[in-house]
Design a protein around this nucleic acid. Structure first.
Lengths: 136, 136
DNA sequence: CTAGTTGCAAAGAGTTTGCATGGCG
DNA sequence: CGCCATGCAAACTCTTTGCAACTAG
């Protein structure tokens, strides 16, 4: 959680801009490079990797590791919420309620483990995807 | 979820045996190779990879992907549990209790989202790493 | 000017594939 | 004997590191 901002560069600007414009998906560094390339920009893969890790360590983006590392811009109003990620359609939902808030206390008390909500994602199937499956 | 059993071989026997004797941990293919090697057995890495994927597709083992793929033998009576992954030391813990079991019902009922425990990992800081941080 | 940033090339790490050999049934 | 399994080597993919050139402040 470093607080130093670093220099402001063209590459960092456009990477962050792209992340802010795609808060509904999880992008891999590869996809980010590709999206930038198709819009005429060119940023080295190494730079993307390094900047994403920097943003992650600052808490600016969230990181999800499944088969590869994926990142999503952390919206201010979601900072202390949990996230529900649908494995079918890829949608990301925010979940904030008493039960989930208590979860941290429980895991801390009974399991001695301090959960970090902003880094934790529940994987599963969303309502609409579940309906589709039932319909078949 | 194929049902074909395949041939019974020395390698498959000892890999499955090892998995059954280590239901409390999550083993990577690399660790499995190493454990077998230190007990005098020798199995090629490729064979371990291929057999684990086969067991996974059959449902015989569960697969967890964090930084690398890890597998655990699926015990019949074992209900699904969540995982706690320490971002400091990388340790992976299992969490199986009523509170966490209720979590699925709650998220399903109040959020219309079906959580899949085996795919969900809680990220945070474990007890011993938290102590180290406090000591500093 | 100085320290942080970039990006190519190369190294790593984990996993998969090609293919000839070996073993179960 | 036929077919599946094995395992070495090599290919592959994602990610990190070394390092020289570059640039923001």
């Amino acid at each position: 959680m470093r607080t130093k901002g670093g220099y402001k560069t063209r590459q960092r600007d456009i990477i962050l801009e792209l992340l802010k414009n795609n808060t509904d998906t999880h992008l891999s560094s590869d996809e980010i490079c590709e999206m930038l390339r198709s819009s005429g920009e060119r940023v080295g893969a190494t730079t993307v990797y390094r900047y994403l890790e920097k943003l992650y360590s600052e808490g600016t983006v969230q990181k999800y590791v499944t088969d590869r590392a994926r990142y999503t811009y952390t919206e201010k109003h979601c900072r202390e919420h949990f996230h529900l990620k649908c494995t079918e359609c890829g949608s990301l939902f925010c979940a904030d309620c008493d039960f989930l808030s208590q979860l941290c206390n429980h895991v801390k008390g009974d399991h001695g483990f301090t959960v970090i909500p902003s880094k934790t994602v529940f994987y599963g199937v969303c309502h609409s995807c579940a309906e589709k499956s039932n319909a078949q």
